[in-house]
Design a binder for these strands. Structure first.
Length: 296
DNA sequence: GCATGTCAAGTTGTG
DNA sequence: CACAACTTGACATGC
């Protein structure tokens, strides 16, 4: 009924140095260049493989891959990495594991943007799609590349139209993978706001329960859930997190995620995969299952 | 080792 | 009006 996963980091493996987001600041990249980026990327990819194996052994079937596997990826072609062959081999093996993978490119991706912002966005999104290609994953929403619209530019409807227009500039594989998520900010996009975008493009809507609570718009949680569910051409992936302010730290920002999940997730009788966005990662998942059971 | 200041990118609203 | 928040705090420096 409900398959749970988590995002990017495994805290117990991270303690042992198994992390996928080794990176560097700009001046280090300028000093050390692509050779060092390659070393870090290879280590990241190898760690990814180990984390995925760990997940599979634990029965975890859903996982989000970090967007920082390749340091400064926008500055070179992946083939140029000295360790590209080893990286590709590792990714191919990782791609064969029985786990549903997705990515969530960062807030700098503004597909409704213009000029260099749009160029940078397309480049970054294509790199994510390329990663999935290298892993041998068939292009579909099974492996989503999920972003926010992320900016209203003073006119939500016009911005949706521009997003749809720019969507057509993406490679076919990327188009088949892209999804959009409801925002948590009052000026941005609720599930209801995203429906027209889905109508224009077929892009599925990722329902984020926590964002919906912060910024529901006209729909109830169940209505928003069902609308988002109906926008998918397969079993959806949704996101869930609990409020840090409500449960852990009264002074935390309202959007801040809690370390753990504090309430059972209602999936309204549907089959869905859910990525838990909780700071304690796999520990939060384990605690959720202990507390609320595997089935919602 | 560990504390601390700094770090690519865009946009928004909180504090 | 600075800055935190977002996907994920981590890197580099200096004590």
């Amino acid at each position: 009924m409900l398959q749970l996963g988590y995002a990017c980091i495994n805290v117990q493996l991270a303690e042992k140095g198994i992390t996928t987001n080794r990176g560097m600041i700009k001046r280090t990249f300028q000093a050390k260049g692509i050779g060092y980026a390659s070393e870090l990327a290879l280590q990241n990819v190898q760690a990814l493989f180990r984390i995925l194996q760990w997940n599979v052994r634990q029965g975890i079937r859903v996982f989000r891959i970090t967007s920082e596997l390749f340091p400064w990826a926008s500055e070179y072609e992946l083939e140029q990495l000295p360790d590209f062959t080893a990286i590709r081999r590792t990714l191919e093996e990782a791609g064969k594991l029985p786990i549903r993978l997705s990515t969530h490119p960062g807030p700098f991706n503004k597909l409704a943007g213009s000029g260099p912002t749009l160029d940078n966005t397309i480049r970054d999104l294509e790199i994510h799609s390329r990663l999935f290609d290298l892993m041998g994953l068939e292009p579909s929403h099974w492996n989503k590349i999920n972003i926010h619209v992320g900016g209203a530019y003073g006119d939500k409807n016009e911005t949706i139209r521009r997003f749809a227009e720019n969507f057509r500039k993406l490679s076919p594989n990327l188009q088949k993978r892209l999804t959009v998520e409801n925002d948590d900010k009052p000026g941005l996009y609720t599930v209801a706001d995203l429906l027209p975008l889905h109508a224009l493009t077929g892009i599925p809507i990722v329902f984020d329960y926590f964002h919906h609570r912060l910024h529901p718009g006209p729909l109830s949680e169940e209505e928003a859930f069902q609308k988002a569910y109906g926008s998918w051409d397969m079993r959806p992936v949704f996101h869930y997190s609990s409020s840090r302010r409500e449960h852990e730290e009264p002074t935390a920002a309202r959007e801040a995620h809690a370390d753990y999940i504090y309430e059972p997730i209602n999936t309204y009788g549907k089959e869905v995969d859910i990525v838990l966005e909780a700071k304690m990662k796999e520990q939060a998942l384990a605690r959720y299952q202990k507390e609320f059971g595997k089935i919602a």
